[in-house]
Design a protein around this nucleic acid. Sequence first.
DNA 1: AGGGTGATCTGCT
DNA 2: GCAGATCACCCTC
Length: 229
Amino acid sequence: MPTDRRDERPTERQDECPDEGLAALPRAFFDRPSTEVAPDLLGRVLRCTLPDGNVDLRLTEVEAYQGPDDPASHAFRGRTARNAVMFGPPGHAYVYFTYGMHYCLNLVCGPALHPGGVLLRAGEVTGGVALARARRATSRRDHDLAQGPARLAQALGVDRAQDGEDVIEGPVFRLLPGTPPPAALLRSGPRTGVSTAADTPWRFWIEGEPSVSPYRAHTPRRRSLGKTA
DNA sequence: AGGGTGATCTGCT
DNA sequence: GCAGATCACCCTC
């Protein structure tokens, strides 16, 4: 007999996803290096439409991957069956499966000969909250719904079936302009362990957002920390 | 702090 | 064709 406090406000119409006045982004938005696209994605809203409904997600944390330059990028070692979408036109979703149980959602960007992508790491569910809660029953608070890349994909209902879907004007995804965050709240940080572009900031987030883990924002890499004590 | 999970890639034969 | 290493994480303890 759990106490469902979150169901105590039935009159709140927060699950509506009004379509009026929401222009799509120009396709050229993604025809830039991922390090330029990534910060511009913060604060924008990604709508995901699947048979069981819509979920709107306001992006709060993203990470750029530069294909040829970044050893951590799936595109680093060339085209394979799994990462083929990264070598296609920008503005499409690249979804991969990892750790035997998690999906992660990336947006392909960059010129075709310089494939890159932006990993969507966290966001705030601004529409379709009930559906997102149902998909992520283990979330105890709403800011947990899309806190972390695999949770984000789960909240949106994304798996490999959405790999390659158009993000600009496709039937599944739609990237809406949203409200850009105040410049004073924008943060970025370099990733350690990537020597080829040490000056390039890879991770971007909005300071103070509950869906962004503040601990992770200040800790570059777990792997890079040696065993102490 | 550690366990779990399965697709993918690499290197070898 | 196959074995072993890898993996950008979530969850439970």
